[in-house]
């Protein structure tokens, strides 16, 4: 590796001087440089978000009148429209209902399965684990039409449970992978000690094991929530009126002539809120969750 450092000045090559003043001065510069890089990147990320927030607080006259960098005529009327008009806020309620159902179903079935994968070898375990992964990767577009027909034929079309079950397609595999990643970190001796102490499996699982992987359960729940919340194609295909999610409500508004930009922006801001509220608690697990528990 030393052959790449021919450009280093002679004085600095004396061992022991590496932490001396010139080096320290040189090290200060990259820190500043990295702050600039991060500043620019975060600016790039925040600018479109700021614009959405900015528009949601303007009146339509101001939006269409002239370009203003901040609301001159601050108004919360757009938010009021959404929170008082049933056709808008029912979208949020519908979304929250099926997302909650989905999280409950996902965790209930994924917890025991993840335990089995993390602790035991059994016939076909590797194939099964791989097959689960392929479902996480399956394009929703492939499933849209068959789901529509399947749920129509069992009379579940336009119900919350239909969307919740459909989202299990990718959320259950995700949860199994994430939970398995957390569970393998728990030493097996704990299980064995508990059995020797006379715990039955269900009691051990709830009383001892679950508290140990509480953060894993939290992360799995968060990601199940998130992926169900952000998905549009399946939830839109499987609903028409009674269970229509907020995402679909928004796209239909865009189709109408004369778009109400302010309300649309406000609706967008409100869909970001659930993620933004809990993001602080999962900040160290975001990468892990997106990479199926494998980082």
């Amino acid at each position: 590796m030393t052959d790449t450092t021919t450009s280093a000045p002679g004085a600095a090559s004396i061992p022991g001087r590496v932490t001396d003043a010139p080096v320290a001065a040189r090290r200060k510069l990259p820190i500043k440089g990295s702050a600039v890089v991060m500043g620019l990147y975060l600016l790039f990320l925040m600018l479109p978000l700021y614009w959405l927030l900015n528009m949601s607080l303007k009146t339509n006259a101001e939006i269409l009148g002239s370009l203003t960098l901040w609301p001159r005529d601050l108004t919360f009327a757009n938010y009021e429209t959404i929170l008082t008009d049933p056709s808008w806020y029912s979208g949020y309620i519908n979304s929250l209902i099926y997302v909650t159902m989905n999280v409950a179903i996902t965790l209930t079935v994924a917890l025991p399965a993840a335990y089995a994968f993390s602790r035991y070898h059994f016939m076909g375990d590797k194939h099964l684990f791989f097959w689960l992964l392929t479902n996480r990767m399956a394009p929703p577009a492939v499933f849209a039409l068959p789901f529509f027909q399947l749920y129509s034929s069992v009379q579940l079309f336009d119900t919350h449970i239909a969307v919740a079950l459909a989202h299990c397609l990718f959320n259950v595999p995700l949860a199994v992978w994430i939970l398995e990643g957390f569970m393998r970190g728990v030493p097996k001796e704990i299980d064995e000690t508990a059995y020797i102490d006379g715990y039955s499996f269900p009691r051990f699982f709830v009383k001892i094991f679950l508290p140990l992987i509480a953060s894993g359960v939290g992360v799995a729940a968060f990601f199940a929530f998130m992926f169900s919340w952000v998905e549009l194609l399946l939830s839109r295909t499987l609903t028409s009126v009674d269970a229509k999610p907020i995402a679909a409500t928004m796209t239909r508004t865009q189709g109408a002539s004369g778009i109400d930009w302010g309300v649309l922006a406000a609706a967008g801001v409100l869909t970001i809120v659930p993620g933004a509220l809990v993001i602080w608690f999962v900040r160290n697990y975001i990468a892990k969750g997106f990479a199926l528990g494998r980082v």
Partner: peptide
Amino acid sequence: ASFCLVLMSLPLLIPWNVVGTIWQIF
């Protein structure tokens, strides 16, 4: 570090159609 993590994660948690809407407007 936490500050950057939180701000950077924000776009990942936005519903996909809202991502579309944001850029449509922007």
